[in-house]
Design a protein around this nucleic acid. Structure first.
Length: 217
DNA sequence: GCGACAG
DNA sequence: ATCTTGTCGC
């Protein structure tokens, strides 16, 4: 396929090329049976990537991969740091997810190709990005109650939604990854946050990669 | 030129 | 991401 970039310049060139393959529509948005959460934990140059698959908020599959960082953290190129290990973990699942819930941005990215878009395009699976903080764009504070939203705007374009997933808690930043529309993406995120600020998928993956990293040191 | 900057 | 205790509030 494509050679994995070794420099920031090559990484940006790859994003510019792949961004055109993103499908920002509901083409793969049938209510998902299997929803996967993905996350990576670090300890120096060691890392643990985890994927946890939930069916109706109950875990039905999981995979963890231990490895080492191969790319530095550069704002805008975050995906190159986590994708190799995450793709390997996805390959170790028994169940193929119907939706990937990524810890980071999708279209809410300088080149409209954040981690969620990249993972979606590489796997061909529907994906959404759920970030804890904003990266690009401007927005208004959404209302105080769960379900309230406001547009995340970049260059006059709505690239995501700021979503209040719990009453009086900081909102999360939801953006389209691949094969799902923004409205549906927000709907899915709200369905995954019945109790906490972050999706149950993200929480499960976060716990798994952290314990895996510790248990391997 | 000066800050800001997913995790 | 990670460094880090207690504490305020539901």
């Amino acid at each position: 396929m494509h050679p994995w970039p070794a420099t920031p310049e090559q990484a940006i060139a790859l994003q510019e090329e792949l961004r055109h393959q993103v499908d920002p529509t509901d083409s793969g948005a049938e209510p998902p049976r299997y929803v996967a959460g993905l996350d990576v934990a670090y300890d120096g140059d060691r890392l643990a990537a985890a994927v946890v698959v939930l069916q109706e908020l109950r875990e039905v599959d999981r995979a963890v991969v231990l490895g080492r960082t191969t790319f530095p953290y550069v704002p805008g190129l975050f995906a190159f740091r986590e994708i190799p290990a995450l793709v390997e973990a996805l390959g170790r699942l028994r169940i193929t997810p119907d939706l990937l819930v990524c810890d980071g941005q999708g279209l809410a990215h300088p080149r409209r190709f954040g981690l969620a878009c990249h993972l979606g395009v590489l796997t061909g699976l529907p994906s959404v990005g759920v970030a804890k903080t904003a990266f690009v764009g401007s927005w208004a504070e959404p209302g105080p109650s769960r379900g309230a939203t406001s547009d995340l705007v970049l260059d006059g374009e709505v690239v995501g939604q700021v979503v209040r997933t719990q009453n009086k808690t900081k909102p999360v930043f939801v953006s389209v990854g691949h094969r799902i529309g923004l409205g549906t993406a927000v709907e899915r995120v709200l369905g995954l946050t019945p109790r906490y600020r972050l999706p149950e998928t993200t929480r499960a993956a976060d716990h798994l990669c952290r314990q895996a990293l510790k248990g391997s040191s």
